[in-house]
């Protein structure tokens, strides 16, 4: 069973994403911000991380930069999932090491498609 970490400060988004991922047979973990996500990555090895951009305490971008610089366990596929839909944000995310990018709002088909693209479907 593949593991996915959902990082989002919105409980609703986490619930919707969890529902989709569980029906795809993922083991799902949740974090409310970048710092919680970093802690989760120290304790668990995730195959894919679904990452919001704007969050309190630590943003998705700050998390991604720190995560990719981690000495171990830093190679999960990272899919940004955010309302920041401008080309500048997308390019910045790719430069920081994101593998894919979902522009909110999203639906099940979009998420399935992105998971397939990163080889985690």
């Amino acid at each position: 069973m593949k593991s996915c970490l959902i990082v989002d400060d919105s409980k609703v988004i986490r619930k919707v994403a969890r529902h989709i991922l569980e029906t795809m047979n993922f083991e799902v973990h949740e974090a409310c911000d970048g710092q919680e996500a970093l802690n989760s990555c120290l304790e668990n090895k995730h195959d894919v991380i679904l990452l919001d951009w704007n969050m309190p305490i630590m943003s998705g971008m700050d998390f991604l930069k720190k995560y990719r610089l981690s000495e171990n366990n830093n190679d999960a596929k990272v899919i940004f999932c955010t309302t920041e839909n401008g080309i500048g944000h997308i390019q910045a995310a790719i430069s920081a090491g994101a593998d894919e990018y979902v522009m909110k709002p999203f639906d099940r088909t979009t998420l399935e498609s992105k998971l397939q693209i990163v080889g985690c479907s």
Partner: peptide
């Protein structure tokens, strides 16, 4: 549309 480009198209190719 945003929905259409998110179906099957890798983000690197979109950009």
């Amino acid at each position: 549309s945003q929905f259409e480009v998110q179906r099957g198209l890798p983000i690197g190719l979109l950009v």
